[in-house]
Amino acid sequence: MLYFISSSHNPAFNLATEEYLLKNYEDDFFFLYSNTPTLIVGKHQNTLAEINLEKTEKENIPVHRRLSGGGTVFHDEGNLNYCFIKKGEKGKLVDFQKYSQPIIDTLQNMQIDAKFEGKSDLTIDGKKFSGNASHVYKNKVMQHGTMLFSSDLKRLNQLLKVNPLKFKDRGVRSIRSKVTNISDYLSDPINLSEFSKKLILQVKATFPTAKEFLLTAQDNEQIEILMQEKYNNWEWNYGYSPNYRFEKLSNLAGGSILEVELNIEKGRIQNLKLNGNCIHPKAISDFTNKLKGLYHDKSAVLKTLNEINLDLYFNNMTSNQLIKAFF
């Protein structure tokens, strides 16, 4: 077992580190990292259906997709993330309770009554402080999880507040739970760095042969490449979402109504229908043809809208009004 605390707070880099170590090393790993504010969606989720896009954009919060399944989580500097990478017997690799045990043991030693509950949650006083997910690769499993230590829980709830009625798909939906911070239960306050060191000590006690690990210059170079090619890429973070249908009814200025229905496949607009009292019915099919094939991405759609004479298709409609109707 090799252990380390990541020196990076870049969420894309840390996600890429997980995948890189899983696929390029034969060693078992345990490592900890904290990220700057970011939203992390599960591998099988529809990104737009999981996040409050308006607030995410307003606060300039990046969104990344991880390698494992499960629901969407919010990371900030008060959230500590752990990752186990372990070899094992195929068919018996996934064991959420087993790999969560060092976390529970650490907190129990700190006189905090942490428990493993449900499929993969860690709780204190019936409130969730950690959610866990896993990914199997060959004869190895990567299990990672969040640990809310002193996170901004109000901000977390706001960024994950979405309207589920706009999306119809087969993506995995996040299950919202009452959450809490570990720091609220500490009799003797410590900071996140001190808590990280306690976790490392527990892992060393659980795995007596554990040794410290540092990324090499070559490791960092390869992780940077993976980060740019995948974890900072729109096609992975948004376009990888399962096919979905987007429906939205917008009440616009001056009594205008616009109803939008989009069918999205592999991130691209394949079919779209527009109805309302603000469109020119005989011309609207020409407009919809211009948007077919575009990524369902604000910047891509807005670029095209700004290149079109909207007066040919709508009554007194601006590109900014339209873009809100499409997202």
Rank of each mutant, 00 (worst) to 15 (best):
F129Y: 12
T146E: 04
T146Q: 14
T123I: 06
G126V: 10
V136W: 01
K98H: 12
G91K: 02
G70Y: 12
T146G: 11
K138V: 08
D76R: 06
K58S: 05
L53R: 02
L122E: 07
K86H: 08
G42R: 11
L153C: 03
L148D: 00
Q111N: 15
E54D: 14
D113R: 10
Q97Y: 02
F84Y: 05
G42K: 09
H64N: 15
S100W: 01
L93S: 05
F129V: 06
K86P: 01
T47G: 13
S120H: 13
G131H: 10
V136T: 09
H44T: 14
I103P: 08
S100D: 01
C83T: 15
N109T: 06
H144D: 05
I61F: 05
N132F: 12
Q108V: 09
L93M: 05
G42L: 15
G88W: 04
N60A: 10
S120D: 10
K138Q: 09
I51D: 00
E77T: 08
Q111E: 15
V63Y: 09
T146C: 11
D125N: 14
Q101A: 07
Y82G: 02
E50D: 15
Q108T: 12
K138G: 00
V73K: 01
D121C: 09
H144I: 09
K43L: 15
L53F: 14
S120C: 12
N109G: 14
T123P: 04
I104K: 00
N46G: 11
K127H: 12
D125A: 15
Q97S: 11
K138N: 08
S134A: 15
E89V: 15
S100N: 08
D76N: 08
Q111C: 15
E57W: 03
Y99E: 05
Y137E: 04
E117N: 15
I104A: 06
L53N: 06
F74R: 02
G69I: 06
E57N: 10
G145V: 10
L53S: 14
E50M: 07
I104S: 04
M142V: 05
V73W: 05
K127V: 07
R65D: 12
K140V: 07
L93F: 07
C83G: 08
G78N: 09
H64M: 10
N46M: 07
L67T: 01
K128T: 07
I112T: 12
A49D: 13
Y99S: 03
K92G: 03
G91D: 07
Y99V: 04
K128Q: 01
L67M: 03
I61M: 03
L93D: 06
S120L: 02
D121I: 11
K87C: 00
P102M: 03
T123G: 03
E77C: 10
K140T: 10
V63E: 04
S130M: 00
D105V: 00
D152Y: 10
E59P: 00
K128R: 07
I61E: 11
G70D: 05
K90W: 13
N139R: 05
A114K: 06
Y82T: 02
N132Y: 14
Y82C: 09
S120A: 15
D105Q: 10
S150H: 04
T72A: 14
T146P: 07
Q45R: 13
I124Y: 01
I104H: 06
E117R: 08
T72Y: 02
